[in-house]
């Protein structure tokens, strides 16, 4: 741990500070949006959106290398790809609910396939695809911290402004419709919030592991409270703890940070469940 703190404060290793900052900042969006994902039970939609991000990253890297567009960062491809995936899944599931799982599967695989094809054909591309799939904190630069902070602000502002409407739509769509709420529009808005949040998550833990960090904090928080707003608050704090602890643990042992963050979160989830079960068991035996 001492070694990690030294590295964190070392003026020549800014990447670690940036990673920690991105982790803490984006936790706010993860906790809020993750709670919606878990309570609305749309984890698989989030997973499909996440895998589509590779298509966007591939397209950005391909165009950058092919046409010398040095300003074209992978995130400029990731964001529209995630939003597009969210809208396609959302619109299809609203129009033909029985086809929802088919479109989720198709978007998931096609997005990923396009990404792999584009990366394979990117001239001079030598970076490991693993970085995008499983996260690489070395990819995080200072300007990314600002970008993440900006997107974070957008997600939080939208979620707070529309909170009561999103809650009503998630709880009971039909009733919300009878109150004149544009249920379809709010559902698509929620999916777009999820898409933006997933792009933030990809920085930290990569495409494949996104879902775990989106759902684990909310799942743990759900063990402590049964009110949405409280679950969101606790999930935000847990997400900050998981990402900070994950990065801190990964550094001294030279482990990849994404998987370390996820395993930390999963360990806490299992521990909370075990303690709860144990206490329930003790309570019953006392009675």
């Amino acid at each position: 741990m001492h070694e990690f703190l030294q590295a964190l404060l070392h003026p020549d290793i800014p990447v670690l500070r940036h990673a920690m900052l991105v982790g803490v900042l984006s936790s706010v969006a993860f906790g809020i949006v993750g709670t919606f994902v878990v309570t609305r039970r749309i984890t698989f939609i989030a997973a499909a959106i996440a895998h589509c991000v590779l298509g966007g990253v591939g397209a950005a890297l391909y165009l950058r290398a092919r046409f010398g567009l040095t300003w074209l960062e992978p995130i400029y491809g990731a964001l529209p790809a995630a939003l597009m995936a969210a809208l396609i899944i959302g619109i299809v599931s609203l129009r033909a609910r029985e086809r929802e799982d088919t479109v989720i599967g198709a978007v998931w695989a096609v997005g990923m396939a396009l990404g792999l094809l584009l990366l394979a054909k990117t001239p001079g591309y030598n970076k490991d695809t693993m970085s995008y799939l499983f996260g690489d904190i070395l990819l995080i630069a200072r300007r990314d911290v600002w970008l993440v902070a900006g997107l974070d602000l957008v997600v939080v502002a939208v979620a707070v402004f529309f909170y009561n409407k999103l809650l009503a739509v998630c709880f009971d769509e039909e009733f919300a419709r009878t109150r004149g709420l544009a249920v379809e529009r709010y559902y698509l808005l929620l999916l777009c919030l999820i898409a933006v949040t997933i792009v933030l998550l990809v920085y930290l833990v990569g495409i494949v592991l996104v879902i775990a960090l989106l759902t684990l904090p909310a799942a743990v928080a759900g063990q402590f409270s049964r009110r949405m707003a409280w679950i969101m608050g606790i999930a935000v704090l847990l997400c900050m703890v998981f990402s900070t602890a994950g990065i801190a643990l990964s550094y001294p042992y030279d482990l990849p940070s994404g998987p370390t963050i996820i395993v930390t979160g999963a360990a806490v989830y299992l521990a909370v469940l075990a303690v709860k079960r144990l206490r329930r068991g003790l309570g019953q035996s006392v009675r």
Partner: peptide, 16 residues
């Protein structure tokens, strides 16, 4: 199992 209080649900009648 949706995590809301009784009051939260009643207030949804004014969400619009």
């Amino acid at each position: 199992q949706f995590p809301v209080s009784v009051m939260d649900v009643a207030l949804m009648g004014l969400a619009e």
